[in-house]
Design a protein around this nucleic acid. Structure first.
Lengths: 228, 228
DNA sequence: ACAAAAGTGTTGAGAGTACACCCATGC
DNA sequence: GCATGGGTGTACTCTCAACACTTTTGT
């Protein structure tokens, strides 16, 4: 292929994108922005931006998160790095994608210098996205579902206190399948990661006991081995 | 922090590193190179290099792999991207790390323009490494062990034909624990991913039946759910 | 015949799954 | 008193883990 010598790979722009998940209106949603500038101006995209000197990649992601939602201290992890040479016609663009999970609260998205519209959007019905962002979104969803099965990310979707039915509903929405109430409760309680907060939530029927996630809980992974 | 405007994050160098695993001498080993140039000249490091125009990140990793080992068509996956601002004092260096798994054959490492020594090295007894490469190595090992439990990477460590005892030994070496022979054989055979090649390997005792991995096998993941 | 490695079954314990009714509250 | 959602237990199946002896070959 190309025989460009070393130290001359040309100008490379490194950006960080963050797929921000939440639960709203009984659906799994992501935050999207409409780009104000650049070759994809006017198109919807995953929020993000260039890395700045002195920032770690995670710093850049956290900054993006705060700029768009005002939230700090949320669940965030690095996802995958996309760097195909033709993903942006203007420049060599390498994007380190992340995903974040924020609680189902009333977060008001904020516009920024780069984005003239910001909006929550259902995962299964999103507009056409800039670059290869649709691919990133799919990958993030796959990973979220996957991690839900063997880690405690699920709790990040809910506010600090929640009922068991709310938790079950969150799992059902993300996994896209129904779960048995009695089995769900037995399993989640026997895992020992929840504690009753003491409060109750009153609604239409019998009040539901509120729980919180024990932060001293070790949400350990016990994958069933496929082979050995 | 720094208020560098957009499109001015300065010069960023993007490199791709590849942690190459193999089995040699009853140990899990990785390929290391001794750097010929740069701030870490004379130090051992994980092989890799800068991305070139027209190359995908995977292309760069595959090229590195071929330059160092001559191997093509091996197992390779992206691992994690490291980009802390202080990992190289000279420049902003973002490294997309990968890991590869190559069969336990007699691969002769090759030196390159960048590396005056190349050598296999036991994973648990490696020299001090340049940059944050020790961290990358640890992370790669963790991921390899992890994937071994729910995918078919294990087979990539062996030549095309192998005995069940060889396969079990490979698993034991990587996982660092002993496995029960009967349970191992029952489980691996009932998974339906192996087929007898028809041959036998003669050694000290009774000849062992040779197997190969069925490339039409779907090595599906069945993680046991932790919570729901 | 003996050394050396290959090969082979059973049992008990724990986890997963399917399934239907009573309970506490607000109106 | 009734509608609404909260809360509870049991039986069957399947997978996992522990465990020891026979078979085939080379010398």
């Amino acid at each position: 292929m190309s025989q460009a010598g070393k130290a001359s790979a040309g100008v490379v722009t490194v950006t960080v994108d963050v797929v921000i998940f939440t639960l709203r209106d009984e659906r799994l949603q992501v935050l999207l922005v409409r780009r104000r500038h650049g070759p994809h101006a006017g198109m919807w995209a995953i929020p993000g931006g260039e890395i700045r000197p002195g920032e770690t990649l995670r710093d850049t992601a956290l900054r993006t998160l705060e700029e768009q939602t005002g939230l700090v201290d949320v669940y965030l992890e690095q996802l995958y790095t996309f760097g195909d040479p033709d993903r942006d016609p203007q420049q060599r663009l390498v994007t380190v994608s992340h995903f974040a999970v924020v609680p189902a609260t009333d977060v008001v998205p904020r516009t920024t210098d780069d984005a003239d519209h910001v909006s929550w959007c259902s995962i299964k019905d999103h507009p056409k996205l800039a670059f290869d962002h649709a691919e990133i979104l799919h990958y993030a969803l796959k990973r979220l579902r996957y991690k839900l099965e063997y880690t405690a990310v699920g709790f990040e979707l809910l506010p600090e206190e929640f009922t068991l039915t709310e938790l079950q509903t969150a799992y059902e929405i993300v996994l896209g399948e129904d779960l048995d109430k009695r089995n769900f409760r037995r399993k989640i309680l026997s895992a020992g990661v929840l504690e009753p907060s003491g409060g109750f939530r009153s609604g239409e029927g019998r009040p539901a006991r509120l729980y919180r996630y024990r932060d001293d809980a070790v949400a350990e992974v016990k994958a069933r081995r496929l082979f050995p």
